[in-house]
Amino acid sequence: MDSVHESRFVYVTFIRTTPERLWAALTDPVFIKRYWFGMHVETEWTAGSPWTLTFADGRVADAGEIVEVDPPRRIVIRWRNEWKPEMKAEGYSRCTMDLEELDGAVKLTLTHGIERAGSTFIEAVSGGWPKILSNLKSLLETGEVVLKP
């Protein structure tokens, strides 16, 4: 909600796959690289473990920690931008991925928000996520991504 104290978006995509396969796609760094424009994710995927997202050249883009993991249903990440000072200054955001099986497909709901109005960071990621989710859907359903890095 873009209110006086919060910026948030909720994206939904339906992917013809199983929750287990989607879970693997969301947590396997080799697979992530294929739909996330070459980004590298490093974490143990356990509650409390550090989480980092690095560019292909090794610079840290975002970092934080895993808040909640419930395979194959839910991941919550405490997430802060690390490479743009004005976005880093906004502090930590919260990204939640919910997986729900529905008629041979999985509904993936991605909620990403921060407790501040008019967040530049949330605006920036809100433009990136649809491309990533679209690539993820395409990769799981057809074995190929449409948008390359």
Binding site: M1, F9, Y11, T13, S138, V146
Partner: peptide, 14 residues
């Protein structure tokens, strides 16, 4: 609360 979901539009663009 209602949220806009642009993901299907991206899928078509793709």
């Amino acid at each position: 609360l209602h949220f806009i979901n642009p993901v299907p539009i991206y899928a078509i663009a793709d």
